[in-house]
């Protein structure tokens, strides 16, 4: 069971949780966070905290998702009176509200044109630029979305979120090479992001599940992700999967062929791959045991991921028997 917390919403929101989140709307809308007193007094008697507005924004998203448009409108009005209609973020949130209410693609096109107008006035509005890409994606125009995003990252090359989104878009069109490039940009900005390393490794694995250089790179990135996070289920899962694929390939290709490899990626030694696989197996077993011993909602792991890991270990057991 995922905790329905509006201040820090979970990283995955299934419909049940979305419903729980949006059901908090009447309670939060019941009391006004800002004071209605004139200026100097309003500072003294204001009830707002920094968390107030984060909660309002998350509530707005939850209300839009569950189709509670009346509440969404109220929250949006509250945010607008607090921050002003010209605020960069507010323009994007208002656009989001309109997008949610758009009935067909035609209305969505209209919203897209509105975004264009906003950008003509202020080309530095990053939130609206991102919304514009999201609309293109929602319209199914992935190629246009990619073009718009490449312009965005050209203008703002340190935006890790945009690079990650671009990588996702490329991956969805099957352009794995470009997707890997974009994620490497993410790694340049945040070299300690274990999830980014795992994602690069996944892409390498997908791009060539029978070629030694691709699998070697996947192995390296998975190894780095567990080096950055010593209980990272996805990292250990990938480590085990890749090393299982890599081991037979390494024993097949003899030493003579290894020297003639066209890539500069030196394949790992079979012994070290074997050792990595053993470590991953042990750690996965430990994670599964810990998960089944913990109470519901007390573990940080996703249930589906743990089940997948258990299946991987079971499959392995059958082969050995």
């Amino acid at each position: 069971m995922v905790q329905a917390n509006l201040l820090t919403p979970p990283s995955r929101i299934p419909p049940q949780t979305a419903l729980q989140l949006s059901q908090k709307a009447p309670l939060i809308l019941a009391s006004a966070p800002t004071s209605s007193l004139p200026w100097p007094l309003s500072l003294l008697f204001s009830r707002e905290t920094p968390e107030t507005w984060a909660i309002h924004e998350n509530l707005l998203l939850a209300a839009l998702r569950t189709g509670d448009d009346a509440s969404a409108r109220q929250i949006l009005d509250r945010l607008t009176t607090r921050f002003g209609a010209d605020n960069e973020r507010m323009i994007a949130l208002k656009g989001l509200y309109e997008e949610a209410l758009a009935k067909d693609d035609k209305e969505l096109e209209k919203i897209f044109n509105d975004y264009e107008k906003v950008l003509k006035e202020d080309p530095t509005n990053m939130s609206v630029r991102k919304r514009r890409v999201a609309v293109l994606k929602s319209l199914g125009r992935t190629a246009d979305a990619i073009t718009a995003l490449t312009v965005l990252v050209e203008n703002s090359p340190t935006d890790a979120e945009a690079w990650a989104e671009l990588s996702e878009l490329y991956a969805s069109t099957g352009a794995l090479g470009q997707a890997i490039f974009c994620l490497e940009e993410v790694l340049l900005i945040m070299p300690n992001a274990w999830s980014a390393h795992a994602q690069v490794a996944t892409l390498h694995y997908l791009s060539g599940s029978t070629s030694i250089p691709a699998l070697t790179l996947a192995l390296r990135h998975f190894a780095r992700s567990v080096e950055l996070n010593d209980s990272y289920l996805r990292g250990y899962y990938g480590l085990k999967l890749v090393s299982q694929k890599l081991l037979p390939l390494l024993s097949e290709s003899s030493v003579s062929k290894r020297n003639a490899d066209e890539d500069d990626v030196a394949p790992p030694k079979p012994q070290s791959v074997k050792k990595l696989e053993e470590i991953a197996t042990a750690k996965l077993g430990e994670i599964i045991r810990q998960y089944s011993a913990s109470k519901a909602g007390q573990s940080g792991y996703d249930e589906a991921e743990v089940i997948a890991a258990r299946e991987l270990l079971d499959r392995d057991g059958k082969v050995e028997r």
């Binding site: 989001l96 890409v133 994606k137 929602s138 979120e161 945040m190 999830s195 980014a196 996944t202």
Partner: peptide, 24 residues
Amino acid sequence: FAFLGLDTGIGGNGEGRRGFWDVR
């Protein structure tokens, strides 16, 4: 690093990358 939205893998249905949130 949850904001990068890379935890759910390729084509995942996570809540990361809020700027590109696909409301529809």
